[in-house]
Design a binder for these strands. Structure first.
Lengths: 413, 413
DNA sequence: TGTTTTTGTCCGCTATACGAAATAAATCTG
DNA sequence: CAGATTTATTTCGTATAGCGGACAAAAACA
């Protein structure tokens, strides 16, 4: 536990100032003061320190004539070059990388279309290392100028430990990717669940900038769930990120099935397999573009394809309804590739959610669809690292953990 | 948003001190200092203030000879009479009340066996008011000496607003119980979901004192879910407490059903209804004691009753497995009345959970059964109020909410 | 040029935490 | 039994924080 001392106080307030500037763009000290409820004196002191550390800088444009007399405001902005970070996203069929500056602007990105499915963790480590080094040098920077790297991947990830407990793209379990990459690159590296990254990206840059509570459901090869609760990413008890695919649902036959097996792209694609067997599509199409084909057929009125999509949508609708019942988020963002944006998938999902929610929760959640974007993922990964650089001190003042050695008896209150 | 100032600092540290004393019983300043990582100077200052406010007091027993030389430690304890609070729990068939002191010890309790199911909120308000006044005067106190009242009831409750959005024991929706009771009694009154109370009770007094993350699933007439996450009660986005009964599950026929309709006591009792119709039990038994009867038959080997219990256990097992996948809590406490402790119910639940959890989560959660206790409920309600008196300042330093008026553009980062 | 207005900074105040030294209250030792 | 030793707590001095009010800066206005 962290005790509350002047240092923590300053850390909290400094973060508020940084956060205000990041969220609302260049702003003057007065505006920061109003926005944060800090006295103008304190804002001045904090911004002076930040200027001194070159984390922020005055906006030169003297052109900010804001209608009115009096001393003109000095707009303060993040210093884009205060730091650079690398974001990486691992998917089953590609490695996506990007270098961003301190503002989260992407300086350079790189997509490696590699099927890492069947590679060992060590090989993937090699690939990521090479990718990072390449992307960094392509951006005109030296690896020593990189302040941090964050890798996102699907599955159950324990960020604090830097360990991937289990992932559909890794055969091994408990892979210590964080330490491995730190060691390889000589740069602080962290890992997180891929949905958490896109969740953070939505909060920092996307549709949810004004929300402190929302869910992101990512529909791809796997199902991911990201939860922003009280302005912070929600993690399970051990810092474990939940995997929506591991959610169990009753299947119509009364048994149990993983949600990922009935509502993800993979499940819908079993339908494509069937079409393949029946000779309706040829094998060349199957590899990689089957989903596009399926969607086209559904759009053209093919009942069978439409039903496959609808079934997946309904199954996910069940899960989403449950999540709404638990978290009551004002917004639920469905993100993903092609399938997630198809009406044949989304409409059944919406209908199912509407049908299942109790009246008391009927209108709390707005379900929106967010088109998949490679950039967003890696921006999220970058943001995850930037957040640490900003010095967010959340969660450091929670109740004390129990340290047996110090506790006399633990008896009676 | 609350800015971080010296006052907040002190509030945080003071809470840590109070919390340490509450959790581990009487302890000396040195022990507090070690446990909280605060300097002994600071602990002295804080305890001096607390002694001054009469919230704590030195333990007189000079007999605390703790083997060793040196100046003896002065043990500090909570002052039981620093405040008194009232806890109330509303169930469909009774109102349970208790007056506790500042330590959470029950001074006086009162159970009113009234079927409040069919009463209006206003009548229930009358009953609660009378009960509180009676219980307080029976405890030898005056209502003016009561620092707060907390009412727990099943359903969807928005604690912050003091409003019960929806409850199985209320016909009305959006009942502002908190303000109503405050007004009636002239004492600060709050409401919360009943499971939250028992969850807090477990954390303060029960099996989960050493855990900062656990779930409580309460099985009664309704299904309740309490979540302790990072040492704090978890609430949905609007401060809404989730209702597990509202969780939707796929029923074997492919449709959706409320979990409460297939896994709560009520659902099992439909079986008792059937027995009643068939003349196997007489009507006098049915009222109130049907569950006991059912359990006895199951224990005696009656397949039909055992199956009804098993079906409920399995259905709940599905939900519990999902919750474990989301929260990864080290412990899941199943609490409730007779049914929850029956092996015919619990064993199928355990089996289902074990069968459904993915390997990566197989061993994270310990599922334990907690016998229902009237006292625990109301202690929880009392604790909820006491927590505020201790001055827990959590969640006050989160990210700033957006105040449109002050934000120039909200454009670009 | 002088006045007004708005912004940002400096000064003095108070509250906090902390470390070092002093004090308090017991046991141990010769 | 007096003094040394040990441990707990308090006192004192220092550093840092945030804040309110006075003050300087920088522009428009008259």
């Amino acid at each position: 536990m962290k005790t509350a001392d002047p240092e923590l106080m300053r850390a909290i307030n400094r973060f508020h100032v940084m956060d205000a500037i990041r969220r609302f763009g260049p702003m003057s000290r007065v505006e920061i003061s109003q926005l944060t409820d800090l006295s103008s004196t304190t804002v001045s002191a904090i911004t002076a320190a930040l200027l001194d550390d070159r984390l922020i800088m005055p906006l030169q444009l003297g052109a900010v004539r804001d209608a009115g007399r009096g001393r003109p405001r000095v707009m303060l902005r993040l210093n884009p070059d205060a730091a650079h970070v690398v974001g990486v996203k691992l998917a089953h069929d590609q490695i996506m990388l990007a270098v961003t500056n301190f503002c989260g602007d992407i300086l350079r990105s790189l997509a490696l279309p590699i099927r890492i499915d069947r590679q060992t963790a060590s090989v993937i480590g090699d690939l990521v290392e090479d990718g990072v080094r390449r992307c960094v040098s392509d951006s005109g920077l030296d690896i020593a100028q990189i302040s941090g790297v964050c890798v996102g991947l699907p599955g159950v990830v324990e960020r604090a430990a830097g360990v991937c407990r289990q992932s559909p793209i890794l055969q091994e379990r408990d892979v210590p990717f964080g330490a491995d990459l730190s060691h390889r690159l000589g740069v602080p590296a962290s890992i997180d669940s891929d949905v958490n990254l896109v969740t953070l990206a939505e909060h920092w840059f996307g549709q949810a900038r004004d929300l402190n509570d929302f869910l992101v459901v990512n529909v791809e090869r796997n199902l991911g769930l990201g939860i922003l609760h009280n302005g912070d990413l929600f993690r399970g008890a051990n810092g474990l990120s939940p995997d929506l695919g591991d959610l169990m649902v009753r299947s119509p036959d009364g048994g149990g099935e993983r949600l990922a097996d009935i509502a993800s792209e993979a499940s819908v694609l079993t339908e494509a397999d069937a079409l393949l067997r029946e000779g309706e599509i040829d094998a060349t199409l199957h590899q990689g573009r089957a989903m596009a084909f399926l969607l086209k057929r559904a759009a053209a009125g093919d009942k069978r394809c439409a039903c496959a999509l609808a079934a997946a949508g309904e199954a996910l609708g069940f899960a989403v309804a449950s999540l709404i019942a638990l978290f009551a988020p004002p917004k639920v963002i469905i993100s993903g590739r092609a399938m997630a944006t198809s009406d044949h998938f989304i409409e059944p999902l919406r209908k199912t959610v509407a049908a299942l929610l109790p009246a008391s929760l009927a209108d709390v959640s707005d379900i929106v669809v967010r088109e998949w974007s490679d950039e967003n993922w890696v921006r999220g990964a970058a943001a995850m690292t930037l957040r640490d650089l900003y010095g967010a001190p959340w969660g450091t003042t929670g109740p004390a953990p129990i340290r047996e050695a110090l506790v006399p008896s633990l008896g009676e209150s």
